[in-house]
Nucleic acid binder design. Sequence first.
DNA 1: GCTGGCACTCGGCCTGTGGGAGTGCCAGGG
DNA 2: CCCTGGCACTCCCACAGGCCGAGTGCCAGC
Lengths: 340, 340
Amino acid sequence: MAHDDRRLRVLRAIVQDYVSTNDPVGSKALAARYDLGVSPATIRNDMAVLEEEGYITQPHTSAGRVPTDKGYRFFVDRLSAVKPLSVAERRAIEKFLDGAVDLHDVLGRTVRLLAQLTRQVAVVQYPTLSRSAVRHLELVPLTASRLLMVLITDTGRVEQRVVEVAAEADADTVAELRTLLNASFTGAKLAEASGKVGDLVEGAPPHLRGLVAAVSATLLETLMEPTEDRLVIGGTANLARGSALDFPGTVRPLLEALEEQVVVLRLMAEVGPSTVLVSIGQENEHEALTGASFVSVGYGAGEQALGGLGVVGPTRMDYAGNMAAVRAVARYVGQLLAES
Amino acid sequence: MAHDDRRLRVLRAIVQDYVSTNDPVGSKALAARYDLGVSPATIRNDMAVLEEEGYITQPHTSAGRVPTDKGYRFFVDRLSAVKPLSVAERRAIEKFLDGAVDLHDVLGRTVRLLAQLTRQVAVVQYPTLSRSAVRHLELVPLTASRLLMVLITDTGRVEQRVVEVAAEADADTVAELRTLLNASFTGAKLAEASGKVGDLVEGAPPHLRGLVAAVSATLLETLMEPTEDRLVIGGTANLARGSALDFPGTVRPLLEALEEQVVVLRLMAEVGPSTVLVSIGQENEHEALTGASFVSVGYGAGEQALGGLGVVGPTRMDYAGNMAAVRAVARYVGQLLAES
DNA sequence: GCTGGCACTCGGCCTGTGGGAGTGCCAGGG
DNA sequence: CCCTGGCACTCCCACAGGCCGAGTGCCAGC
């Protein structure tokens, strides 16, 4: 009882100390800096147990201890309260996000903000198309047989595709088509939209059927394309800070993985708006991330997230602080998108 | 005569050797690897002259020579023919850029391609709004007094802004407004558009005047906003390769400057589609770039560039190769955008 | 079950040294 | 007049050795 409790406190102290100093932490320093109420010798005994259980390890025989991934995991799981942000931080968030002119701008500001708050690499996912609703569908004739379809979602995202159509379409026909499609699709989400296509084609006036079918097909394709989940990345300069210390090999594979986007998107796919997801070191499937930790959360007004955002950094990171920052920023972004 | 000519060849050999080996190059190695027809002793004399003239320098007393920025500059200025790309490279370009679905996709592929070809950091600028023509202007009512203006340019760029209007606008009014604006602005570039606004407001039916003025104002604002020149960056992982060697301090300030975007955009502002701009080390105004070189060129069909693209790397880079790659990619991108 | 003491371990740092690469200069030859 | 081989010199770098200190495990005592 008393033992376990104290050992937990020792582990917590080790994590905190190591995160802030980046030096393997010894029993003496621990006793001096943290008010554990016992002597270094006792702490040594506890540390021996913690090491045996796999929570901490020593880099070499006569050095201090360093938390393992398992140790960080335990620490994170036992984080009781969410650390509240300081007033200055809250103000910074508001100031930063205020005055954004469009979605691109919102997400650009968000990623810079997150990077600055956490001093880590920040990633922000564009609102997933499949979970957004259609606000407007626009058609612009390019040539006689090519239409530019522009999709505007309620989250402010804009996608465009060129549609090749068999029949020629004059201005009037296109106008008719536009009206018809908007009447049908506006306000619809992917799931609903795909259900409507059949009826829509059926019910369309004969001369429009081919066009409706072609445009609808492209629309569905666009909505479902998984690669179209875009990512904004910022603060990569933070990787260079103490890179040798934090990332034994180099930062290169990590940067490559980030640019790859797919890796991060997969991680974000699981994330909901209510709970912060933390993935630590070896827990990450992708090899390039096994030396890093990923803290993320979904944003969006409703129960289902529109997209995710988070930070990537060394396993030796301030989990409590980063989790709080990520959560707070996600909340603001959710509000901002709901408003517009 | 003969002297100057040989000294130039010596300088060229030094640059080439240093670029490929990353070791300060000595007279002996030079004589062995490059067929200069003279003995190391003679080369030493030439090197002494070159050093005195500021083209090369030695890191310390008993080391080989390294080109200075001035040396690279001289080398670049004397690059006679543009190195043609290999067949494989040409094929890679086509394959890479083919099948892009929209502008975002084109530029994303371009930046990855450039990064891969040159093994440097690549930057690609979105087509400048002020030099693009309006393809279509779309208005979507959000609330009674808020309109979403969506601008689609002939280069495929899409911008959106919320316009607050004093008067309420019902669906019919918006439709009228849309027709009026498109009739007037479609095909117009910034310079032309700004000239038209006065007449347009004058000539508009009274009930539309306020709306026309409001939307036009936002349009012009959007077109002129210099910060709206976006940048795509890729291949930052390449900075990590040999970073300690190439960038004495760290890569951090460089990454920061790249994320800042402004710095690079300013450099690109000067660039035309015909000549490749090379900016070496100290020639760069911004401090963070004084250890780096920047190779860029404009892309776009006409005489004036729609935007710029280029690569950033250590001064110790393969200028000939990078210049060729940048130029070739720009040409392809220009074609691609002209087609769509 | 905690504590102080003690012997032990081992990596980091500092120092000293030898080797090697490269240079500058000089005298001689085409 | 210019090139060449030789030679003495300089200075970085890599390596080895030794010291130091932080940290540990264990043990006897309270």
